[in-house]
Computed example of a mutant assay.
Amino acid sequence: MAKPNKKGPTRTVDIFCAKCRSPLYKYRKGGKGALVKCFIERIVEDYTLSVGQCPQCGQIFARETMIRGAPAYKMVGGKVRMK
């Protein structure tokens, strides 16, 4: 399988916790679909203290995984909002 493009898209989105609205990531997202996964190399700013856990309310919102040979975070449905 092909790896995702390292440079990636230029459009950035802000990702927030759905429970407490705390900022989690600033991410270079491609396409206009739902946020299912975040490739680690495309994260511009990371506001979290531990992997996949909201720094304010402590809710688990993602799991670490490998997608197409690249490290990524797989989002848990309904736990994050995107703006």
Rank of each mutant, 00 (worst) to 15 (best):
Met1Asp: 10
Met1Cys: 06
Ala2Thr: 10
Ala2Asp: 10
Ala2Lys: 11
Lys3Met: 05
Pro4Gln: 05
Pro4Ala: 04
Asn5Ala: 02
Lys6Glu: 02
Lys7Pro: 00
Lys7Tyr: 00
Lys7Ser: 03
Gly8Glu: 00
Gly8Trp: 01
Pro9Arg: 06
Pro9Lys: 04
Pro9Gly: 09
Pro9Ala: 15
Thr12Phe: 08
Thr12Gln: 14
Asp14Tyr: 09
Ile15Gln: 00
Phe16Cys: 03
Cys17Lys: 08
Ala18Met: 06
Lys19Thr: 13
Lys19Ile: 12
Lys19Ala: 11
Arg21Glu: 13
Arg21Met: 13
Ser22Asn: 15
Leu24His: 02
Leu24Glu: 01
Leu24Asp: 00
Tyr25Ile: 04
Tyr25Arg: 07
Tyr27Ser: 05
Tyr27His: 02
Arg28Thr: 01
Gly30Ala: 11
Gly31Lys: 02
Gly31Glu: 01
Gly31Asp: 04
Lys32Ile: 02
Gly33Lys: 10
Gly33Cys: 02
Ala34Thr: 09
Ala34Gly: 09
Ala34Phe: 13
Ala34Trp: 08
Leu35Pro: 03
Leu35Asp: 00
Leu35Ser: 02
Leu35Asn: 02
Val36Leu: 10
Val36His: 10
Lys37Ile: 08
Lys37Pro: 00
Cys38Ser: 05
Cys38Val: 13
Cys38Glu: 03
Glu41Pro: 05
Arg42Asp: 12
Arg42Ala: 08
Ile43Ser: 01
Ile43Val: 15
Ile43Glu: 00
Glu45Thr: 14
Glu45Leu: 15
Glu45Ala: 14
Tyr47His: 15
Thr48Val: 06
Thr48Ser: 06
Ser50Arg: 14
Val51Leu: 08
Val51Asn: 08
Cys54Tyr: 03
Cys54Trp: 05
Pro55Glu: 03
Gln56Val: 14
Gly58Glu: 04
Gly58Thr: 05
Gly58Ala: 05
Gln59Cys: 08
Gln59Asp: 11
Gln59Glu: 11
Ile60Cys: 11
Ile60Asp: 08
Ile60Gln: 15
Ile60Arg: 15
Ile60Thr: 13
Phe61Ile: 04
Phe61Asn: 03
Ala62Trp: 02
Ala62Val: 03
Glu64Phe: 07
Glu64Thr: 12
Thr65Arg: 06
Thr65Glu: 10
Met66Tyr: 10
Ile67Ala: 04
Arg68Thr: 05
Arg68Ser: 14
Gly69His: 07
Gly69Phe: 04
Ala70Trp: 00
Pro71Glu: 03
Pro71Tyr: 01
Pro71Ser: 05
Ala72Trp: 02
Tyr73Cys: 01
Lys74Val: 09
Lys74Asp: 06
Met75Lys: 07
Gly77Val: 09
Gly77Lys: 15
Gly78Thr: 05
Lys79Tyr: 02
Lys79Thr: 15
Val80Tyr: 00
Val80Arg: 01
Met82Glu: 11
Met82Leu: 14
Met82Ser: 11
Met82His: 10
Lys83Asn: 09
